[in-house]
């Protein structure tokens, strides 16, 4: 039983890592109907920005909380700028073309950014300093959950709530929903859809940046390739929960984390990916729009 709880908690921690990235994925998909494959790369860039800014501030002798705050801020700003620019350059010109064009463009951007970071920074693995505090009250239960995992879990829940509030109750959220339902009609009633989509990308990229800082702190390392692996898993999680749905992304991530963790614990870690994809296939057969996805009727 103790072992089961340990596995469940490590699955929860894993799920919250996936969820941090899946939230941005699903949000962009929900509004623009575009699978933003470059999202994983924005997350990686967020991590690198925090590493560079954090390293710089540390050498100036600032205390760890200040370094953490400023490096998160810097990576949010820098990643948002990336997200905004990517949308302007790679997606907006293709907005009225077939969806496949934008998808291919997204894959292209993902490769460009990976190679850009590899060339501009390094191809090596770099140590990522642990800026996150070691919470003393978790010390007795660290076999079950450690403070970094706990912080990631809390942040994920918090972000999910904030996003839901933004989308459900604010003016820009209303505009986002309108844009998602029908771009043309939204435009006719005076919604500036360009602005709405830019804001969506900025929010999505900020989430990726926060994810980058937290997850890299957890892993203790960073490399130009981390965005790809994480992006694929987050994508699966988002589809599992119903892509476009904010609570769905979180639920999907947890299901993915639990499946992988329990599968590893009780069967074998050799087939970790297989468990994830078996669950995905089952859910897509039974409920093609994902667990919490809306069933959208296609007009013929």
């Amino acid at each position: 039983m103790d072992y089961f709880i340990k596995l469940l908690l490590s699955g929860t921690a894993k799920g919250s890592i996936y969820a941090l990235i899946a939230l941005g994925y699903t949000m962009v998909y929900g509004i623009v109907k575009l699978i933003n494959f470059a999202h994983g790369e924005v997350y990686m860039i967020g991590g690198f920005t925090a590493l560079i800014v954090g390293g710089f501030l540390s050498t100036l002798g600032m205390s760890i909380p200040v370094v953490l705050l400023f490096s998160i801020l810097a990576s949010i700003i820098y990643s948002s700028a990336f997200g905004f620019t990517i949308e302007r350059l790679a997606y907006r010109p293709l907005r009225n073309k077939s969806r496949l064009s934008a998808l291919i463009s997204a894959i292209g951007i993902s490769m460009i950014l990976q190679n850009f970071i590899m060339l501009a920074q390094t191809e090596k693995y770099l140590p990522f300093p642990s800026y996150l505090p070691d919470l003393p009250f978790l010390q007795p239960v660290r076999e079950y959950i450690n403070s970094t995992q706990f912080i990631i879990l809390i942040t994920t829940s918090f972000i999910m709530i904030i996003l839901t509030i933004i989308i459900k109750f604010t003016r820009i959220g209303k505009a986002m929903r309108a844009t998602s339902q029908d771009k043309q009609m939204a435009q006719l009633v005076g919604v500036n859809i360009n602005q709405v989509i830019s804001v969506t990308f900025v929010i999505g990229s900020s989430l990726a940046a926060i994810g980058g800082v937290l997850i890299c702190s957890y892993m203790g390392q960073i490399n130009y390739y981390i965005g790809f692996v994480a992006g694929i898993k987050a994508f699966v999680a988002a589809v599992l929960g119903g892509i476009g749905s904010i609570p769905g992304a979180v639920l999907g991530s947890f299901i993915l984390g639990w499946t992988e963790s329990l599968g590893t614990g009780f069967i074998s870690s050799d087939y970790e990916d297989a468990y994830a994809f078996i669950i995905l296939i089952l859910i897509l057969i039974l409920k093609p729009d994902g667990i919490l996805g809306k069933n959208q009727k296609q007009k013929v």
């Binding site: 072992y3 340990k6 596995l7 490590s10 699955g11 921690a13 894993k14 890592i17 995992q149 997850i215 957890y218 892993m219 390739y225 981390i226 692996v229 994480a230 992988e260 963790s261 329990l262 590893t264 614990g265 870690s269 970790e272």
Partner: peptide, 10 residues
Amino acid sequence: GAPDYSAIVN
């Protein structure tokens, strides 16, 4: 390349 190995560590 996976970000988390806590399950296998358990």
